[in-house]
Design a protein around this nucleic acid. Structure first.
Lengths: 166, 166
DNA sequence: CTACCATACGTAATACTATAACGTTTCATC
DNA sequence: GATGAAACGTTATAGTATTACGTATGGTAG
């Protein structure tokens, strides 16, 4: 018999590779920068990478508690703060949630394509958009600290699925 | 003698005109659309327009209570929901706060330039950015529902002020 | 060695943000 | 004057995040 997984939209990719790549990169970056990817931080990053969906802090907390009874909100938020500082995760402002950053070693501040159906979040570099945006910001004499570009809608996979059903 | 105001960054503009223009536009739009700009909704919109800073829901609530003891969170959130639906205000996702929309009759989904010092928020149409962004989204086969582009940094006024002090 | 300091973490309390659920009022319409 | 929809009143609760203070650990200057 064959076993079919209750699969994510990105099921056809090898997610274990995503996770291990992300964790390897994180470890590497932290060593280079001389910052500590402590066991808690490492675990939280791993939990975030369990899927490509944005995760809520308290969901992370519940999952962390399974292996660490003493975990409290501060435990999670401290880890999240660290991971964000190091650019290893993104905060999705419009969801109050977090996703792994798949561009840790490249430029940051990407486009986030957030699917309202499957809730997966795709990062896109969108170099041209950033260029034009940078120009616009300059025109406004605005000194950039950070930017969040969050696009909500339906991803191509969900759209295709909906199409199949009709 | 002359009186100098404890002024906002935009003090040199006539803010009363901003407010009355916004309220007039809102009334107009609501009549056209056959929706009710009730006294509560009108007052909340007016409170939001007291400045060009993003306002928190509970700050609005406190201010609303001054003239309406019975106001409760739901009172505010219902008014905010209505105003957002009608495109009369924006929610600033990265601040959990709200600002008046100064483009109610034009296209929506603008750029928000959020000053981390004076906390004022400037809306910019940035047609070119939107064009390039739309193209990028199309390339991703993503079906757009809504977008939020929030830029944090220091506005030109605050930057100039800092410059003066040095 | 040990006193000191910085970093990370433990823990409890609390603040802040938002929604759910259900009842009441109002007003237009039949 | 019964009906239904929209707005609002009211209470409770859910969900998100921070503060404050105490403890443990490890590196380093004296």
């Amino acid at each position: 018999m064959t076993i079919s997984f209750a699969s994510s939209q990105l099921s056809e990719h090898d997610h274990k590779k995503c996770v291990s790549a992300a964790l390897d990169t994180a470890e590497h970056i932290c060593i280079i920068r001389g910052v500590q990817l402590t066991p808690i931080r490492h675990k939280v990053l791993e939990l975030i990478w369990e899927s490509h969906k944005a995760v809520k802090a308290y969901d992370l907390l519940d999952r962390l508690k399974l292996i660490m009874e003493a975990a409290k909100p501060a435990t999670i938020y401290r880890a999240l703060d660290f991971l964000i500082e190091q650019g290893l995760i993104h905060r999705v402002e419009s969801l109050n949630a977090f996703i792994g950053c798949s561009c840790s070693d490249h430029q940051h501040e990407q486009l986030l394509l957030i699917c309202n159906r499957c809730h997966e979040v795709e990062e896109r570099s969108a170099v041209k958009v950033m260029e034009v945006l940078a120009h616009e910001i300059e025109q406004a004499n605005f000194i950039l600290h950070s930017k969040a570009i969050e696009i909500h809608g339906i991803c191509s996979k969900c759209d295709a699925q909906a199409g199949n059903k009709n």
